[in-house]
Simulated scan of single mutants.
Amino acid sequence: MRLLGRLLMILLVAALAACGGGRQGGGRAVMAGQGTGPQFGDSRPHAWIGGHPYDHPVHGIDISRYQGNIDWSTVRRSGVSFAFIKATEGGDHADPNFMTYWQQAGMARIPRGAYHFFYFCRSGAEQASWFISHVPRERGAMPPVIDLEWTPSKTCPRRPPADEVLAQAKIFKDILHQYYGQRPIIYTTVDFYRDNNLASWPEEFWLRSVAGHPRITYPGQPYSFWQYTGTGLVPGVQGNVDLNVFAGSPQQWRMWLNRRLQ
């Protein structure tokens, strides 16, 4: 009987794995709304605390050169509504795939914006100049993004005090605002947000939270975008990709775009 019980348990586990384990994890999880909504998955799905990203109707991706060749038409058909594309880092690094992705996403009619990974070993003004030299000022583009998180780079391990962080980041975003005509979006992580009191900034936020809903990890913080996984699966993209949601309805998304893509 014990052998039979073990056999039944093995069969049950196999059946759960085959169906993706639902929303709790265990394999490739296909999003709710398949056939009419986004056709995404996750290579490492798990249970969510405080709310599930799949309950949001507007989804997008953020990418860098590590995604390789992308079939943008397939990406669009899968339900991707926007894309943030890495352009620059610090004051001397540019993503070699940025312009290719930028042009191809535009041809596929996917709203896209460029982002900059901020370093703390160069001034905000120097980094703004570097970003501007690589990202076109283009009618119809989404606002630029400044990625604020502690850098893992061995060449720039600095963790300056919060007042210096905010001062240099403000210089960067003010220059971009003046040049592109749109206030930059602030992307950040939980530890950086807390360490530098970003709650004091009256800016538009894109928040990373890969275990719980932002209302849990960033209590009281308004946001427009939520990055909810780094192990997403999207038709047209090879391997894992970051997945995001817009914090609103499809109607609110169209209003958001209309305000920014003039």
Rank of each mutant, 00 (worst) to 15 (best):
L16P: 05
L16E: 08
L16V: 12
A17H: 07
A17K: 08
A17M: 06
A18Y: 12
G20Q: 02
G20L: 03
G20R: 01
G21T: 00
G21K: 02
G22V: 00
G22P: 00
G22F: 07
G22K: 03
G22R: 01
Q24Y: 13
Q24A: 11
G25W: 04
G25S: 13
G25F: 08
G25P: 07
G26S: 07
G27I: 00
R28A: 00
A29T: 04
V30G: 06
A32T: 08
G33W: 09
G33T: 14
Q34N: 11
Q34C: 08
G35M: 03
G35N: 04
G37L: 11
Q39G: 07
F40Y: 14
F40T: 03
G41A: 07
G41Y: 00
D42V: 02
S43G: 05
R44P: 04
R44S: 11
R44E: 11
H46R: 09
A47H: 09
W48R: 05
G50S: 02
G50H: 00
H52Y: 13
P53Q: 02
Y54H: 14
D55N: 12
P57I: 13
V58R: 03
V58M: 12
V58A: 07
V58Y: 06
H59N: 06
I61G: 05
I61M: 06
D62S: 09
D62Y: 03
I63H: 01
I63K: 03
S64A: 14
R65Y: 14
Q67S: 04
Q67W: 06
G68F: 10
I70Y: 11
D71R: 11
S73A: 10
S73Y: 05
T74Q: 15
T74L: 15
V75S: 03
V75L: 12
V75H: 00
R76W: 09
R76K: 15
R77D: 13
R77L: 13
R77H: 11
R77Y: 05
S78D: 07
G79L: 10
G79V: 09
G79C: 07
V80L: 10
A83L: 07
A83R: 08
F84T: 01
I85A: 13
I85Y: 12
A87H: 10
A87Y: 11
E89Q: 13
E89H: 10
D92T: 06
H93Y: 15
A94K: 15
A94S: 14
D95K: 08
D95Y: 12
D95E: 05
D95S: 02
M99V: 02
Y101C: 04
W102G: 01
W102R: 03
Q104F: 11
G106M: 02
R109S: 12
I110V: 06
P111K: 02
G113E: 10
G113N: 06
A114R: 07
A114T: 07
A114C: 11
Y115C: 11
H116T: 08
H116V: 13
H116L: 15
F117W: 13
Y119K: 15
Y119M: 14
F120E: 01
C121G: 05
S123C: 09
G124S: 09
G124I: 03
G124Y: 12
A125W: 12
A125C: 04
